[in-house]
Each structure stands twice: as structure tokens, then as C-alpha cells.
Design a protein around this nucleic acid. Structure first.
Length: 106
DNA sequence: GCATTGACTAGGG
DNA sequence: GCCCTAGCCAATG
């Protein structure tokens, strides 16, 4: 680390890193936790440009429990989610409402 | 500094 | 339930 990212990017990465095992959050939730509820697009852009291995980016999914996308292999993202006890079907998390992690304000 | 793009979201048909 | 449109933020050329 040491790479000086934008304050928003750094905040987003911190939020994603706080997502516990077996939980998932939407881009909107992460964006809202980063003080930018309308920056859901920017969150996806940050994850794409700053996909760090220290950040469980696979726990960040789109709304409605949809997986959305992933850097490299989307299938890997699905495998990771299923590996955490999440039921993924048709590119969506069935128990999304149950495993949805409520991001707290910072 | 403007235009384009992206792992998005919500709404309408 | 799917496709298209409009709107938002940040990074890149």
C-alpha cells in the first residue's frame, strides 16, 4: 500500500474490507457508507481499478442480489460467494436479504 | 478541460 | 421478468 488514492476510493476500500465472512453488500450500500450514496458507479469503477487482494471485492455485488461483474472471472466471484455459504443461482444471491451487510456510517 | 467508459441503480414499457 | 433510458461519481485519454 502507500499508493495515494482518492479519499473516496480509500474510504470505499475500507468499507469493503469491513464486510464480514458470509456477508455481502451492494455498491449502493458501500457508496452510502462512503458518504456518497449516489456514487454506486464510482464504487464499481474503484473496484475495477483498485481490486486489491486485501479487499473482499467478491462480497460487493449489485442490487437485488445480482452479482454484477468481477475483474478477471465472474465465475470466480460466484464460487467465492458460494464458498461462504451463500446461495447463488442464475447470477443472483437467493438469500441476499439475509446475508446483506448493513454498512454503518463512518 | 471535455468526452468516453465502467464490476451501477432506478424507473418505465 | 427483461430491455432500454436517464442519472450519478471517478478515472483515463
Amino acid at each position: 500500500m502507500g499508493k495515494k488514492r482518492s479519499d473516496f476510493a480509500s474510504q470505499v476500500l475500507t468499507i469493503v474490507r469491513r464486510i464480514p465472512y458470509g456477508r455481502v453488500a451492494t455498491y449502493g450500500d458501500v457508496a452510502a457508507a462512503a458518504r456518497r450514496p449516489l456514487a454506486h458507479r464510482a464504487v464499481g469503477n474503484i473496484m475495477r481499478t483498485c481490486h486489491d487482494t486485501s479487499v473482499p471485492c467478491h462480497r460487493v455485488i449489485a442490487a437485488e442480489g445480482k452479482l454484477g461483474g468481477y475483474a478477471g472471472d465472474l465465475q470466480r466471484k460466484r464460487s467465492l460467494l458460494m464458498g461462504e455459504g451463500l446461495a447463488v443461482s442464475a447470477g443472483k444471491v437467493r438469500n441476499f436479504a439475509e446475508v446483506r451487510w448493513k454498512a454503518k456510517k463512518n
